[in-house]
């Protein structure tokens, strides 16, 4: 019995480490229409999708829609771009930029609890 409980505990720890730290998820490729790479991102306890893949040199337009009232996600911050947007509940807010070089552009809520990134290829 004691052994079983210990094993379950250790297994849970391993699960947490894998689930939160080790797993690498794939991004959503953004499609291009009319010269702009556009995608909708839903904000509810996280960014959905939270990893989007775009091509460099073309304008990117991210439409954020916040579907919760919790204050945490009220602002989305693109620290690397020096851009941020206030997300009133239920409204679609567009954020535009044109990535010049390949790399990752992370974004997050103001407190850094919710995170996402734009992968530029």
């Amino acid at each position: 019995m004691t052994l079983l409980v210990n094993l379950i505990g250790l297994a849970l720890i391993a699960l947490i480490v894998w689930y939160f730290f080790l797993y690498r998820k794939e991004g959503v490729q953004v499609t291009e229409a009319g010269g702009v790479q556009e995608i909708n991102i839903t904000v509810k306890g996280g960014y959905d999708p939270d990893t989007v893949v775009v091509k460099r040199g073309k304008p990117v337009r991210l439409h954020f829609t916040r579907l919760e009232s919790a204050l945490c996600s009220e602002v989305v911050v693109f620290d690397k771009l020096g851009q941020s947007a206030r997300l009133p509940e239920g409204q679609s807010v567009a954020l535009e930029f044109t990535p010049a070089e390949a790399g990752e552009i992370p974004f997050q809520c103001q407190m850094g609890m919710l995170r996402g990134k734009v992968v530029v290829t």
Partner: peptide, 19 residues
């Protein structure tokens, strides 16, 4: 309720917060 909803949403994004 918001703790559970928030926790579930965060979990789906492989993140975890105060909720």
């Amino acid at each position: 309720g918001q703790f559970f909803a928030g926790a579930w949403a965060a979990l789906r994004h492989r993140s975890a917060d105060m909720n």
